[in-house]
């Protein structure tokens, strides 16, 4: 097969870029444990009162690690405010009691979908004190734009 000299150049560039992108993702995933926010855990969304989500809130796991179990619903989160000290790592476990929502903290990598029946999980370390806004970025109904909560990171 005859290939033009220039075709060889751009095919090498294209295939090389693809291999490089996949290698970077592969090393991040398998050597450094990077993963998309997800969790295999499921829950009965009609009966959250009898699940681990019966009393949503923050609990301390060890000195600097907290677990925040949150329920998203139209149009807010339960609880509406959580408080953690600066420097702590928060493991978010979130589910929805009605429709699909999302949980996004602008300016961070926390951005996940919240699906009824599933518990979605991600973690984030808060290194700066302040008030963090949480928004729903998945259109969930007429009050979608009011759906928010706050994370207070105390010094």
């Amino acid at each position: 097969m005859h290939l033009h000299k220039y075709e060889k150049i751009w095919m090498t560039f294209g295939i090389g870029s693809l291999v490089l992108f996949l290698a970077v993702l592969g090393v991040s995933a398998f050597a450094f444990g990077a993963q998309p926010p997800s969790h295999m855990h499921s829950v009965d969304s009609q009966n959250l009162e009898e699940s681990v989500f019966s009393a949503p809130g923050v609990e301390q796991i060890d000195e600097t690690t907290y677990r925040a179990r949150l329920v998203a619903m139209a149009f807010g989160y339960d609880p509406g405010t959580i408080e953690v000290p600066v420097g702590s790592t928060v493991i978010f476990e979130i589910t929805s009691s009605d429709v699909v929502h999302s949980f996004a903290i602008p300016g961070t990598n926390v951005n996940l979908m919240v699906t009824p029946g599933h518990v979605n999980m991600t973690e984030h370390t808060f290194t700066e004190p302040g008030e963090y806004l949480v928004l729903c970025n998945e259109y969930c109904g007429t009050g979608h734009q009011h759906m928010q909560m706050k994370i207070e990171v105390t010094p």
Partner: peptide, 27 residues
């Protein structure tokens, strides 16, 4: 007669560099 692919090369490399640079900026 071989066609000149110079214009194609420039355009392909332009789009390619755009994708390449944006990928790393986002990463």
């Amino acid at each position: 007669k071989e066609h000149s692919l110079k214009g194609t090369l420039y355009f392909v490399m332009f789009i390619g560099s755009f994708i390449f640079i944006s990928w790393f900026v986002i990463y």
